[in-house]
Amino acid sequence: MERVPILKIGDILLVSIQLDMSDQTAVQLQEDLAERIVATGCHGVIIDITALDIVDSFVGRMLSTIASISKVLDAETVVVGMRPAVAITLVELGLSLNGIRTALNVERGMELIAAARADELDHQLDDDPDAETATP
């Protein structure tokens, strides 16, 4: 069975899906990613689907599951590069990909993760009472 490679770039895991995945390959990717997030301690996952010419309900569900799993593991998932024809088809199919963040390309995806990360750090500082008192 073919496997989808997962690359680590800085604090981000990049998955570029290049092949017409069988359902089994999709499930395998889901498992591999969860392991890599824990092993690397990355806080962002970018799934690039530029090369995918269709996304059916199975792949859609896989994307949702990956997003939920990584959320639990404290990582933000962004799906990037969806083709217009794929988006139109998904709308017609009735699949909304709830809970998934999307961006037009890898670059925008990285910005989105950086922004989400920055927000979170701000919140952590706000919530932390020691941070307030530490400054005279």
Partner: peptide, 14 residues
Amino acid sequence: SLVDQTKVVTAASE
């Protein structure tokens, strides 16, 4: 058309 190809392939997959 590209969109129709995508639609019919997606339906076939389902």
